[in-house]
């Protein structure tokens, strides 16, 4: 992006805005950290961070909150990616949850997500004494995100109060907090899914192989394709393992992530699919519609 035509394009403006936000955090907070979920959006965010501080390395670490139920392909990709952009990667797991045998099959997704994601995240942030945490969420993903600030205040318990958000004007961000409080920062707030793919294509950002179509073993549940991993999948009566040519639009804990049938093996083909997709991407996330006003409730509790 070396063009200096009079008016920046949308993508150039979004890139500049994200870089400004990321630099602002580095300049004003003592202990920032960047949440890295291994998904395409957080890879784009980490790539932007690398650009923001070029030629210096990232002045903060990446943090992966590991539920131990991520796809095996994701762990391998995570370590390669961090090395490639020259970032330190920290991994945190809720050890107590593991000891209690937390799993998405017998616990149910609500309780499991609370313990292994929300609680784990809060533990990691408080143990690391992080005062600012970047997340890769976009406002076009989900309706409660559409109202969240770019610099989103969290109280001592990591909670979000949607009714009591700080007004955010121009590009003047309020970075003032007391000890124990924190800010969640969303540099990709104004990006759309198409922008993310476009940018991955333009900047040649590596993404996990699970986004590309391949024949994979799957189990059909609630009209969704759930990936089958022999060693940990708890089959119910009547479950049938089938081979399906498919890919994933979002990545999370595999038992909670549905695949879409697809033959897309290039970014362009994925974009083609995205454009004709008449279902928004979060329908492939099981946790989003397991409670009334699901995301808002989780966010109030401290989830990203």
């Amino acid at each position: 992006m070396t063009d200096t035509s009079p008016r920046l394009t949308t993508i150039e403006l979004l890139e500049a805005e994200a870089i400004e936000i990321i630099r602002e955090v580095a300049a004003t907070f003592e202990r920032p950290v960047m949440l890295y979920s291994i998904g395409k959006d957080s890879s784009v965010m980490a790539h932007l961070a690398a650009k923001a501080f070029h030629p210096a390395p990232l002045p903060f670490p990446l943090l992966h909150v590991d539920t131990t139920w991520k796809f095996p392909e994701m762990y391998a990709f995570r370590d390669r990616f961090a090395e490639k952009i020259g970032a330190e990667i920290l991994v945190h797991t809720n050890a107590e949850g593991v000891a209690r045998g937390a799993n998405p099959f017998t616990w149910g997704s609500v309780e499991y997500t609370n313990v292994m994601k929300t609680q784990a995240l809060l533990q990691a942030l408080s143990q690391g004494r992080y005062d600012a945490a970047f997340g890769g969420a976009r406002r076009d993903e989900e309706k409660s995100r559409a109202k969240e600030r770019i610099f989103s205040f969290r109280d001592e318990n990591g909670r979000w109060d949607p009714k009591n958000q700080r007004p955010e004007l121009w590009s003047l961000y309020n970075t003032e907090i007391h000890r124990g409080e924190s800010i969640r920062v969303f540099p990709l707030s104004n990006w759309t899914e198409l922008d993310i793919w476009q940018y991955i294509l333009m900047e040649e950002i590596p993404i996990c192989e699970l986004y590309f179509a391949k024949e994979r073993p799957m189990v059909r549940r609630h009209e969704m394709w759930i990936p089958y991993y022999e060693d940990r999948f708890v089959l119910d009566e009547g479950d049938k393992v089938e081979t399906v040519r498919c890919r994933f639009r979002t990545l999370g804990c595999w038992p909670l992530t549905a695949a879409v049938e697809s033959s897309a093996t290039t970014i362009e083909e994925i974009v083609a699919e995205t454009m004709v997709a008449r279902q928004s991407e979060r329908t492939t996330r099981v946790i989003d519609f397991d409670q009334e006003a699901s995301m808002e409730t989780k966010k109030r509790e401290g989830y990203f």
Partner: peptide
């Protein structure tokens, strides 16, 4: 959507301005 259309879409999105 054909690949030609996709390329056109991406080209347009890459060059579009923002209001």
């Amino acid at each position: 959507m054909s690949m030609v259309e996709i390329e056109e879409l991406l080209r347009r999105n890459e060059q579009s301005d923002l209001l």
